[in-house]
């Protein structure tokens, strides 16, 4: 399954994997802002951003083709809008739109491919995102694959019985809802039985080291340098 790849990547070991999630979030935002505010005509700047990302992928020891292929998921949507721009005679902006959306997708992917989801969410909680929201994202991510699997099996069963009618599709949706609801109450009871206190305990509390600060500053400086100089 495609999404399992990210989960695997995020559990590997590398210099980038070891950095504190907060440093990586900050670096990502700096990079995205730099890309977002780059003028469409500055071709060399986009090449510079691509080089920065390539260096980061190499440092994270992630498979280059697989990562690029995944980030390319953003290209169909971007291509649609790029066509509109192209035929409105804004060629430079059309190309820049493709470059910006693709580079941003690679950068975002780099964050989730080097940071396990629990660590990332813990960092967001430390950065004062509403706790309820962080918890809900946490549960959503954990049960996404379970319930998707259930939906996939239901779809397979339905399609082997023939074409699904509108009403029976609604019935399938309600059954999926019922199973999800039951699963949620089961999960809650199981968690209570194991002493859940309303917070996920972190296995290792995040520690901000000098290397994290150095990485963050280097990433910001590199993004700004490409943005300013090229």
């Amino acid at each position: 399954m495609r999404y399992a790849a990210i989960e695997q990547w995020s559990r590997q070991q590398s210099v980038l994997h070891r950095r504190d999630a907060r440093a990586k979030i900050g670096a990502l935002l700096a990079f995205l802002i730099a890309v977002s505010t780059t003028a469409p005509a500055s071709r060399i700047a986009f090449a510079g951003y691509a080089l920065l990302l390539a260096a980061a992928i190499a440092a994270a020891r992630l498979p280059f083709p697989a990562l690029v292929r995944r980030a390319a998921l953003v290209l169909p949507v971007a291509a649609g809008f790029a066509l509109v721009l192209w035929f409105s005679d804004e060629r430079a902006r059309a190309v820049a739109l493709l470059e910006k959306s693709f580079l941003s997708a690679v950068a975002t992917l780099l964050l989730v491919a080097t940071t396990p989801m629990p660590e990332l969410l813990r960092a967001l909680e430390i950065l004062h995102l509403p706790r309820l929201l962080v918890l809900v994202i946490h549960f959503l991510y954990r049960y996404l694959f379970v319930i998707s699997g259930q939906a996939r099996r239901m779809r397979l069963a339905a399609s082997s019985r023939g074409r699904l009618q509108f009403r029976s599709a609604a019935g399938a949706l309600a059954v999926l809802f019922a199973r999800s609801w039951e699963r949620a109450s089961g999960i809650y009871r199981a968690m209570l039985a194991r002493g859940f206190s309303g917070q996920f305990p972190a296995l290792a509390p995040p520690r901000w080291r000098a290397a994290d600060a150095a990485f963050f500053i280097a990433a910001v400086l590199a993004s700004v340098a490409v943005r300013v100089a090229l």
Partner: peptide
């Protein structure tokens, strides 16, 4: 809280 998360997963899967 688990319910909200599972409902999100449900909408995703739906």
């Amino acid at each position: 809280v688990p319910l909200l998360g599972v409902m999100g997963a449900f909408v995703f899967a739906a």
